[in-house]
Design a protein around this nucleic acid. Structure first.
Lengths: 124, 124
DNA sequence: CTTTCATTTCAATAGATCTTGAAATATCTT
DNA sequence: AAGATATTTCAAGATCTATTGAAATGAAAG
């Protein structure tokens, strides 16, 4: 993942309305939801919702597809996975403390069992 | 992790200078680095660096500690771990596709081996 | 081909964020 | 106490982001 893409993705996640939209779209699964339903779900006006959906689509974390008169948006799960991985690998250099907090083995190449989160992690 | 904390953390990561600072601090380990060295490392003026360091500290992803005349900043590895976990759990509902992209088992409770990243993931 | 429905685009505005350079603060040294 | 060093704070301006409501677009139905 390119750094500029990650910066855009982080910016997309740094807004309350957009984070709500993302959660809703993740819950909706790969089928996604039409813009109007998303607007209702998050309690924002159509134009405001459209603005945030465009921002998120430009950041690459969701995808749009016209279906008859509606425009259906869906989370891009692979892009989200790439973002988590960027955070873990590029930003955090696979630091063992960071990894332990998400139930990951200290060493990314490890063939051993994933450990329970060790003590000292902030609660999520 | 509270949602508002995550929003602040994402905002903190959505700036190029701050992301560079974070990477440098992660590389520096728990000992951290004084502000002046960080400024040199990222090529930003003292006041600009100070502004970004304050933003990151307020977001809780780094910590400051005065040491004689310098102020030493260090990455907060547990907070970063909590952020990765928030992204994975709260935002992505532990979606298996997302998890596969970071070398995680599809099921967070799984006792089986962490799989190699399955096909279809965006390259990080 | 007009109407209706779903969504976007636009223009205006308000507010937040970033950068710059100068001045202020805190700490150490002499 | 005066000077040097490390960093922050402040004020000004530029830029970016978000919200609102009205108007425009696209697609289907009558």
């Amino acid at each position: 993942m390119k750094e500029s893409a990650a910066l855009d993705a982080f910016a997309a996640m740094s807004n309350e309305t957009r984070l709500r939209i993302l959660k809703r779209l993740v819950a909706a699964g790969p089928t996604g939801l039409p813009a109007g339903e998303i607007a209702d779900a998050v309690g924002a006006s159509p134009s405001r919702t459209s603005f945030h959906l465009s921002t998120m689509a430009a950041a690459g974390i969701i995808r749009a597809q016209r279906q008859a008169r509606q425009i259906v948006y869906a989370a891009d799960f692979m892009a989200l996975g790439a973002l988590v991985r960027f955070l873990l690998e590029e930003c955090c250099s696979n630091d063992p403390t960071v990894r332990a907090c998400c139930g990951l083995a200290a060493d990314p190449a490890s063939e051993t069992q994933t450990p329970a989160r060790s003590g000292g992690c902030d609660d999520a």
